[in-house]
């Protein structure tokens, strides 16, 4: 049932002579097919946490297990979507999605075509990244990760650079993909509405050192509507937690 398990994760960064405690005693479990959103103040270690789960950073103490196996490095089991689409500028959309897999392979080709439909980029198979909008490019990068059938998709503020309109489109698209593929998601954002709109659970982090402050389950059926009363109640709940975090920060910096 549990897909991702993080135990006693501690992470330090060396800054000059002193060590900064970036992540402190992180404990987290993600179930198969679950959509987790993570919010927290800037610099609290969200990206660092995601990199550790993705295996891009292995210099930490503690344990991260995916499907019962220790994460020792980056792999296609953990799909990563960065804030920027990070496409290969010299490849067309379909080749970007295939990347190191040969499009001459019929199975790859079929899957790429299916994914292009899923992320609604029909007609853009042969376009170069420079011809795409930010939202389209990010959809290509999502398709690229999905082609590898990841067990979990890690998204680091993937829609942060998009305008409000495109962003809400992309949120919808991501939920559609999630419904279709049932891939587990860990989605980092700094937008409270986005966190509640997407997540089964919202994880609120506090900074210095980065810890999990609170986990709030969002028991609202999909599709959700941001204007409903129950959504707003959750919003209040999260905001309240967030204010505690900010207060903590204020006290902390007052102490210095």
């Amino acid at each position: 049932m549990t897909l991702l398990e993080i135990k006693q994760l501690n992470k330090f960064f060396q800054k000059g002579k002193e060590q900064i405690h970036v992540l402190k005693e992180i404990e987290l479990q993600v179930k198969r097919g679950e959509f987790i959103t993570v919010i927290g103040p800037s610099g609290c270690g969200k990206s660092t946490l995601l990199k550790a789960i993705g295996g891009l950073d292995t210099e930490y103490s503690g344990e991260i297990k995916l499907d019962g196996e220790r994460v020792t490095g980056a792999s296609i089991k953990q799909g990563v979507i960065f804030q920027e689409p990070r496409l290969f500028p010299w490849l067309t959309v379909e080749r970007n999605i295939a990347a190191n897999l040969p499009l001459t392979d019929i199975e790859v080709k079929e899957n790429v075509e299916k994914l292009i439909k899923l992320v609604r980029l029909d007609g853009f198979e042969r376009a170069y990244p420079k011809e795409l909008s930010g939202g389209m490019a990010q959809r290509v990068s999502i398709a690229r990760a999905l082609l590898r059938k990841p067990k979990i998709l890690l998204l680091d503020e993937p829609f942060g650079a998009l305008d409000a309109f495109t962003r809400s489109h992309m949120q919808q698209a991501l939920l559609d993909i999630w419904k279709e593929e049932r891939t587990s998601m860990v989605f980092v954002t700094h937008d409270i509405d986005e966190a509640i709109y997407l997540g089964n659970k919202v994880i609120i982090m506090s900074a210095r050192p980065g810890t999990i402050q609170k986990i709030i389950s969002i028991d609202l059926p999909f599709p959700r509507k941001k204007s409903t009363k129950s959504f707003q109640e959750y919003r209040q709940l999260v905001l309240k937690e967030f204010e505690k975090v900010e207060e903590l920060e204020l006290i902390d910096s007052a102490g210095i």
Binding site: A74, V80, F82, R86, A99, N100, R148
Partner: peptide, 27 residues
């Protein structure tokens, strides 16, 4: 280096890293 990270995430082997990432970038 951001593209290198992508190469890692997509499990490029050394050969693919050279032919699909480094050489096109350096072209």
């Amino acid at each position: 280096s951001k593209l290198f990270e992508v190469g890692k995430v997509l499990e490029f082997n050394r050969w693919k890293q050279i032919t699909h990432l480094i050489l096109p970038s350096a072209l």
